[in-house]
């Protein structure tokens, strides 16, 4: 159950299908480019201030998430 205490905007709910499709293409092409670049040895290791998106999990829970 959701508590509708703010308006998520119907338009914003519908548009997510398009946004997700674009995101899928962008992510795919990025990982494709990354593979080519690493094959050619062009990948630079930037020293990042911020981590990547994944939360550090224990192995057990990683498996659980993978099972879903």
């Amino acid at each position: 159950m959701h508590f509708l205490y703010f308006d998520p905007s119907i338009g914003a709910m519908i548009v997510q299908a398009v946004v997700a499709a674009v995101a899928g293409v962008v992510l795919f092409s990025k990982s494709f480019m990354f593979k080519i670049k690493s094959f050619l040895g062009l990948v630079k290791n930037d020293d990042d201030l911020f981590d990547d998106i994944d939360v550090k999990d224990s192995d057990i829970e990683n498996n659980k998430a993978g099972d879903k």
Partner: peptide
């Protein structure tokens, strides 16, 4: 989209669907 659906009070919200994988892509 927000503007176009601004006057839609029918509650179409329940009908929109998006897979979890698609949301993760966003």
């Amino acid at each position: 989209f927000e503007e176009n659906y601004n006057d839609d009070y029918e509650g179409n919200i329940k009908q929109t669907k998006l897979s979890k994988k698609a949301q993760l892509n966003i």
